[in-house]
Each structure stands twice: as C-alpha cells, then as structure tokens.
Nucleic acid binder design. Structure first.
Lengths: 198, 198
DNA sequence: ACCTGAACACCGTTCAAGT
DNA sequence: ACCTGAACACCGTTCAAGT
C-alpha cells in the first residue's frame, strides 16, 4: 500500500497500474493478488491510510477550536496526496475513516446542538474540507505554472466578452489574496453554526 | 456527445467506452475520431454541455437571491447527471463553463464587495455547490438502497466503539432532517458573506 | 502459504486503406 | 470529407502450475 501511494504521489493515480506497482516492487505482476483482493481493494486501502494521518484533536479546547484544528490537519493531509481527495469523496470508508468520522461527530456532540443542527454542522464542515481541497488540488495540479494557465485561458476567452472572468483570473495570477481562504470560509461556517444553533 | 451522456447516465461513467459508444450509434469503432480528437475531448464536451443547463438568473432581484437561484439550479443539473460532478471539479472548463463563471462573478459584482471579499465569496459559493453535490451523489449512487447501506455499515463497525457514528447513520437511515440542507448551508454562507463584507 | 507466466476479455488510439 | 478494420500497446483478472 505504501508503494502504491508512493507511485501515485509521483506519477498521478492514472499512472498507477497493478502491473507497474508489481514491477516497482520487483515482483511478478500477479503476486499482488496474494495481498489484495483486487485493484478496488488496493485503492480503498490507500485512501484509508491517508484518513489515518490527521491527528485526533484535544477536545478540551472547545468544539469550535477542535473542529477547526481537525479540519486544517485533514486539509493538509489531503494536499500531501493530491490523488486522494477524489477517492475520499467517492469510495466506501475504511477503519481509519470510520474513526475519523466518529471523532468529528464526538467533537460536535460537545457543542450540545439539537440532533438536526449537529447533522447540518457535520455535513457543512466535511463539505468545506472536501470542496475546498478539491478546488485547490485541481487548480494546482492542472496549472503548476501560472503563466501557462493564463496563456491557455487567454487563448480560449475573447477579451471583450468576459470582463469579470478576466479580472478574476488576473487577480489570481497576480497572487490573489494574502488571507488564508481555507480558514476564512471555515470560520464563516463555524461561526454561523454556533450562532444559528443556539 | 448527447449519446455519450445518455450512456453515462444509464451505465455510469465507467461503462462509457469509445467502442461501446460507437456501436451504440451503429458506427464502426473508429468513426468517432472524425468528430472528436480523443476521449478526453469527448469528456470535456460532456461536462460542458451540463454546464450549459442552469438558466442564467435575473440580476435585478439582488445579488443574494440571484446567487441562491443560480446555485440551486446548478445543484439540480448536476444531480441529473451523477457522473458529471467529479469531472466538473477536475477538468478544464469549456465555453459554457466560462460563461457560467462569468455570470456568477457578475452577480457578485452587484454586491459591491472589495476585490478580496468578492473572490472569497466566489470560491465559497462554488465550493458549496460542488462539495454538497459531490457528497449527495456519492451517497445516493453507492447506497440506492438504504437498508443495504446500513447492513454493510453494521457489519464493519463494532457496535460498542463508535457510538456517535452509529447514531449518525441511524439518524440518516430514519430519514434524516426535513430541512433542505443544501439551501440551509448555502444561506449560512451567503448571509455570512453579506455580513462580513460590509 | 506465497509466487508466477500464459491467457482472456477488455481498453484507447494509429495508420493505411477505403468511399 | 467521412468511414473503417487490422494492429499496437496497454489494462485488470482468472487459472493452472509451480515452490
């Protein structure tokens, strides 16, 4: 599983095949099937290993601080493995992921919300982690080079017709905001949940 | 492109191959390459067709109402084509998607935020649309049958060790909230943006 | 208990040949 | 200008055979 993660980190998830993984491990192509049921099984194990990376936060610091720290650590773990976020969002959870969910739910239980509001809070927070990370990963993997992005964009969009869009892309190309956008929107959500949950 | 969307709607995106699409159209396998550069090109065209579905909202109703309506329509269009959300988040935009982004940016320009805050708003809103839709699609495609979900979950998670998680799953299995969670969290974000942007 | 090569049923795509 | 079959370089996986 570690070797598979290594390969996916280096060459992307499309560059990971059972045959390449086996030869990377110096084994015959079919030896893998003694350790893994099939490729799906391997992919599940890979995501679940990432799900084990964020440290479980100290709940005594209060629900909002604990949730914030957990979210930031998850965000960082997913950025370390750019192939992971898509599968994180679409595959069935493994043991680490179950524990991960249990931990976030326990943090939210400390907030003493109603059952409905706690559920909204859970989905709003995980949605932010996943949505924001997905956006950032897509952006950075496609456009490692900001200039190449801008050139391709400029070639496809006729200057006159999309004024706001062109401004937006120029804004990002110039470096964008100095704020930590992940934390800003996260706090927007956490504050809103605290206020509306009372 | 329409035939490809039809096939993907019916059999999932993994069930779509160039060979199957061609034979579905009653053509030889390689005829497709006269109309499309390669499979990537076809997939781009498919997502972009979905990006053309949400109606462009009337901006005279105010930025918040217009953004809300646009978000809801996008959410619904993406639910109609469950394969689309993943590619929407990872592929380079086409003409309809550029217009889509321009439209949302124009709506936000009506709010007269600072440049930084308008950018935060743009990403917070698209993040919600994409993150929430992805979550919902993953849930419903994997677990068309709620009972099967519950059975598989119960088999993997030992009852004693994950009390909050088990409560959470039971809550959803019992029907969950009656609220429209998509709209609730969307308004949480839109209200927060309005308040913090002044 | 673990490994493996041959084989099968698929892929996307190139190319030369057709109309 | 559009179509197409044969061929190539890949896949994941089964199975029978090995140690």
């Amino acid at each position: 599983v570690d070797a598979a993660i290594e390969l996916a980190d280096a060459h992307g998830i499309d560059g990971l095949s059972m045959r390449k993984l086996a030869s990377h491990l110096g084994a015959g192509a079919m030896s893998l099937y003694n350790h893994v049921a099939n490729k799906d099984d391997l992919l599940d194990a890979m995501v679940d290993r990432v799900a084990g990376q964020p440290a479980l936060p100290d709940r005594s610091q209060g629900w909002q601080a604990a949730a914030r720290q957990f979210a930031v650590e998850t965000h960082q773990a997913l950025l370390r493995h750019p192939w992971a976020i898509t599968m994180w969002q679409t595959r069935w959870p493994g043991p680490n992921r179950w524990l991960y969910m249990e931990t976030l739910l326990a943090i939210l239980a400390d907030a003493d919300f109603t059952e409905d509001h706690a559920d909204l809070a859970f989905h709003a927070i995980t949605m932010h982690i996943q949505g924001f990370t997905q956006q950032q990963v897509s952006y950075t993997t496609q456009f490692a080079d900001g200039d190449a992005l801008y050139a391709r964009f400029a070639a496809e969009v006729k200057a006159g017709s999309f004024p706001h869009l062109i401004d937006h892309v120029r804004y990002h190309n110039d470096g964008g905001t100095t704020q930590d956008e992940f934390a800003f929107v996260l706090d927007l959500i956490l504050d809103g949940l605290e206020r509306k949950g009372r």
